[in-house]
């Protein structure tokens, strides 16, 4: 058994929506081991976005605990969370979220800037990360000069450049056509094969099929947690 990279216990998160309390998470417990490839599924309102935010250390839970790579992160300060996001988490978003005016290379370098890596080290590592996603020849292009699939690869390179504990993808294919989606899924599969822990939030069952484990949320609780037959086979 691989050591746990993520362990959450009794996670709760409430929002105050104009006086009405919304319970987004009502006590979620989950353990994810190193090198797992997990899809988190659920219909809208199931709490999967909140789950993603908490897992990504963008949000802190109201109750429960969250160990990420052996560190309890549920009660950290903003700046400490920023450090955790920088070192432990690589984000891939539905809308790519690249800086539009910066080149691919510069976008990928950005996490290293905040990690305090020297300029020459940044450039070297960002080039390697772009090479890994097959964009070594596009590194000086800006996002608007790249196709959707290429943009998402830049985002993946940016997510990987700091060697994070987990790659956290939020609807990574939501803005892509099916062919391109397959390409991106192939990239994820390759990263997983090379040992990367991948967590993907999606509402599309056929995308979730690429993961080896599927966790389904409903009304802020884990509804099902199953190994994917096809993938496991």
């Amino acid at each position: 058994m691989q050591p746990d990279i993520i362990r959450i216990e009794g996670l709760e998160r409430r929002y105050d929506m104009g006086g009405e309390i919304i319970h987004a998470l009502r006590g979620v417990s989950l353990t994810i081991s190193r090198n797992e490839y997990v899809a988190i599924m659920g219909p809208s309102g199931s709490g999967k976005s909140t789950m993603m935010n908490v897992l990504g250390c963008l949000d802190t839970p109201d109750a429960g605990s969250y160990w990420l790579n052996g560190q309890e992160v549920s009660q950290l300060t903003d700046d400490a969370l920023a450090r955790v996001r920088n070192k432990e988490i690589g984000f891939v978003f539905q809308t790519f979220n690249l800086l539009p005016r910066a080149s691919a290379l510069h976008n990928v370098e950005l996490p290293l800037v905040y990690a305090g890596v020297s300029a020459s080290g940044r450039s070297e590592r960002a080039r390697q990360a772009l090479d890994r996603v097959g964009l070594g020849d596009r590194m000086h292009h800006r996002p608007n000069e790249l196709s959707g699939g290429q943009r998402q690869r830049v985002a993946i390179a940016r997510a990987l450049v700091n060697d994070p504990s987990i790659l956290l993808a939020d609807e990574p294919t939501g803005n892509l056509d099916s062919n391109t989606s397959e390409e991106i899924m192939a990239v994820f599969a390759e990263l997983h094969r090379l040992g990367q822990t991948v967590i993907m939030v999606t509402h599309e069952p056929d995308i979730a099929e690429h993961a080896e484990r599927v966790v389904t949320l409903r009304d802020g609780r884990v509804e099902s947690d199953r190994l994917n037959q096809e993938s496991a086979a």
């Binding site: 990504g56 963008l58 903003d78 700046d79 920023a82 450090r83 996001r85 920088n86 070192k87 984000f91 979220n97 690249l98 800086l99 950005l110 996490p111 905040y114 990690a115 940016r158 700091n162």
Partner: peptide, 15 residues
């Protein structure tokens, strides 16, 4: 949005 992106990938308040 840019500020959000920067924060997501690890920018602290001071940054």
């Amino acid at each position: 949005r840019e500020i959000g992106i920067r924060k997501a990938i690890g920018a602290k308040r001071g940054d």
